[in-house]
Amino acid sequence: MSSAIEEVETITILFVDDNPDEFVLMEWLVKGGVDQNTELVCVTDIESACKVLDEKDISMILLDNKLHLNDDFRTSVPVLRSKAFTGPIGIVSSSIEPEYFQEFEQYGADFRIGKNELDRNAIGFIIDEFAKKDTKLSDD
């Protein structure tokens, strides 16, 4: 992965969380943790998230597990997938201990991470592993 021939891509991350304090924190973490051009779009509920998906090209979604009125990611991820979103979805939660987190792949999520584990290095790893376009396989 030599960066010389790589063209600069902008990664747009959609962050869904019901606590606006988290937006400030996430902005700060993403800004400091990644070399790429990144844009963070923050919304507080799934309806707004769906609206954003209609309007913007989103590279990755970071989703708070317990959102208002939606039980947890097991109901919210399928809603996002039903909008034909095929990018990675990661579950961000203050606790990922509950047993159902073990089945995150079945519900269409790509990864899970605890909010307390989320620092700049972790954000960098996630973007490297999941959001970069060059991991794509060409449809030959």
Partner: peptide, 21 residues
Amino acid sequence: VSHDLRSPLRHIRLFGEMLME
């Protein structure tokens, strides 16, 4: 204690770090 109290604590820590930075 482990769940609900952890969240505000984390906020305090991170906002503190932001202040320092």
